[in-house]
């Protein structure tokens, strides 16, 4: 135990810690936003350049516009459910489950899409390759969505489990709900931007 030693532990006020954590997460969102910018820049750059007609070569299938939005749906539902839980504490455990389930289902759908891509071709030696710049960009966008699903599910699971523990500081946990809200809102926005981008084939 700490009091057995000559060390002491000072806990900063939950407000100070909460504000700090929220700022930190928002700065990470800036970094992730720059990553998103890089992806979207790549998508439209190669689309508009259409080098050798290779954006979406003739005969190559693409995903439907709707599938991009379906892939983002889990992120959007999770953000909305989390926001609902922030305002309605009584329903928080329920909304936390909804958030987690939405992210797991959405993540599974994204994985399923990635496992069944229609634009993989084979070269003369029988080796697979992604036929067209659209296909290449789609893989990157789907990967980013998947990353958001995984990190989001980790955060959601943490919040859910922590919601059942009584020894935690309620003020600090409240701040963490808000901080997580920033992250969930961001990944929903990111999902929407990706879906919007991939709507332009």
């Amino acid at each position: 135990m700490a009091h057995d030693t000559e060390f002491h532990v000072h806990h900063d006020s939950p407000e100070a810690i909460g504000r700090r954590e929220r700022l930190g997460v928002r700065l990470l969102i800036v970094a992730d936003g720059a990553f998103l910018f890089g992806m979207i820049f790549s998508y439209f750059y190669l689309r508009n350049l259409n080098v050798n007609g290779g954006w979406l070569p003739k005969g190559v299938h693409s995903f439907s516009t709707a599938s991009g939005w379906v892939a983002a749906l889990g992120l959007i539902v999770a953000a909305l459910a989390h926001r609902l839980g922030e305002y309605n504490k009584a329903a928080r455990n329920l909304t936390a489950i909804v958030v987690l389930v939405a992210l797991l289902i959405g993540g599974f759908y994204q994985w399923h899409q990635m496992a069944h891509m229609p634009f993989i071709a084979h070269d003369d030696a029988g080796r697979p390759f992604y036929n067209g710049a659209y296909a290449s960009n789609w893989v990157l966008v789907a990967g980013a969505n998947m990353f958001h699903y995984i990190v989001g599910a980790f955060v959601a699971l943490g919040l859910l489990l922590r919601g059942y523990r009584v020894k935690l500081d309620p003020t600090l946990e409240e701040w963490r709900q808000r901080t997580a809200g920033s992250w969930f809102t961001w990944i929903a926005i990111s999902g929407i931007v990706c879906a919007l981008a991939t709507s332009f084939k």
Binding site: A31, D32, A34, F35, F37, G38, M39, F41, S42, L46, L49, N50, V51, N52, G53, G54, W55, L56, P57, R127, P128, F129, Y130, N131, G132, A133, Y134, A135, S136, N137, V139, L140, G143
Partner: peptide, 26 residues
């Protein structure tokens, strides 16, 4: 992060044969 995007694209080109930087596939 934009450099990271460039490196991930390089990595994808090299590993799973995407074509971010290959003019043959756009």
């Amino acid at each position: 992060p934009t450099f990271m995007v460039a490196m991930i694209q390089t990595g994808l080109d090299r590993t799973i044969a995407t074509g971010f930087y290959d003019a043959n596939v756009g």
